[in-house]
Design a protein around this nucleic acid. Structure first.
Lengths: 203, 203
DNA sequence: GATGTCGTTGACCAACTGGTCAATGAAACA
DNA sequence: TGTTTCATTGACCAGTTGGTCAACGACATC
């Protein structure tokens, strides 16, 4: 029945929610206009009315994915800690736990990531999100490195940030394909062991 | 011109090479039977004659990709080093440099990786390759940890191996999307700095 | 009540996909 | 030489895709 109207913003939100659901379930391959439309109880023509092209839907969804996987403001929770070393470690733990708890989202992020290799717009968006995400770590790392100047020669804030991101994303990515042989506690414990932190990690 | 024969093994190899080329260029999305056939100068019917289904071509290609990205026998080059700590670090450096030099291959691996989330056969194959790859690190890590027993409490060989793999894959994966802000020397230097190794890394 | 805006629908389209299959002919074998 | 084998081809098929568009009708405005 044509004519059942809704405000522009509302419909877009509904469609995006449906797209999010479909993508989480079936992956980006399964993210077809018709699948999204069905989930949103619309015709696929209507989806195309609100998002002129499929790419636009995909990019809008990517924004949503990035907002929950590589969000800005990761520093908020750790900013109160006095010791910069503690801040860095707490930030690391927080992000690690957050992402490891959402394997499907990480999976989706990874799908966009590989698409980014062939799609400039996706790459650009990922670039921006990754940069601000990494910058958060770099800021804390910079303060943490100041404390031990000279001692750790070749370490730079950017380098530490990149390494931290590797470790944070690397765990759920490995777990995604091989959940049996990867253990979060062992992984985190080993990193803390290498870093020379306390032997019994706080929960 | 039908009838221009070739031995089974030869053709399969030619088709696989063509598929490898196509996948590196256009990604797995662009890996269609017709694209591969065109590259191999065959009809797409002929490709299907040698690989009954498209999945089989994809899986055969995955084996090839894994053989060059997560190969067995990574220990060969470092096995002569006397000190286990040096062995671990050398192995890490070697693998890091090897993968960072082949961004297109890493990109392709990543595409398979995300497909693995929805495809059991791909996942199984990746699982096996990842397990043996990680096992190489775990072996060296075990020996390296023996040297400093008690000192690094929570570190386990498996945990260290998983962390190493995260760092090794994490660099090219970040570089893939953000080549400007990632620097291999800074990355490696920071890790060495954290590990407390020599401040001037050997090239 | 007449008018116009605009969200919605579904038929329709062209392009492309993986897959089937009868026909063809080169090579191995008898 | 005649027969068989089998790699190869290309027409063909059904299904799916993103995208277009005329028709429709709910709603606000006059």
């Amino acid at each position: 029945m044509p004519g059942a109207k809704a405000t522009e913003a509302t419909r877009r939100e509904e469609i995006l929610r449906a797209a999010y659901d479909v993508a989480l379930r079936r992956g980006i391959d399964g993210l077809t206009l018709r699948a999204v439309a069905a989930k949103a109880r619309l015709s696929h023509g209507s989806v195309l009315f609100h998002f002129k092209r499929k790419d636009q839907l995909g990019l809008a969804l990517l924004d949503r994915v990035l907002a929950t996987t590589l969000p800005p403001g990761i520093l908020d929770a750790v900013e109160t800690l006095p010791d910069p070393q503690d801040r860095l470690l707490a930030l690391f733990r927080q992000e690690m736990a957050r992402l490891a708890a959402e394997p499907r989202l990480v999976r989706l992020l990874l799908e966009y990531w590989s698409r980014g290799a062939h799609n400039a717009m996706i790459r650009k968006t990922l670039q921006a999100a990754l940069e601000t995400y990494r910058a958060g770590f770099a800021r804390v790392a910079e303060e943490a490195l100041e404390g031990k100047a000279g001692h750790r020669g070749a370490a730079t804030p950017e380098g530490v940030a990149a390494a931290a991101v590797s470790l944070i994303l690397g765990y759920p990515v490995q777990a995604m394909i091989d959940p049996r042989h990867i253990d979060e506690a062992r992984y985190l414990g080993s990193i803390q062991g290498i870093l020379g932190g306390p032997s019994s990690p706080t929960p």
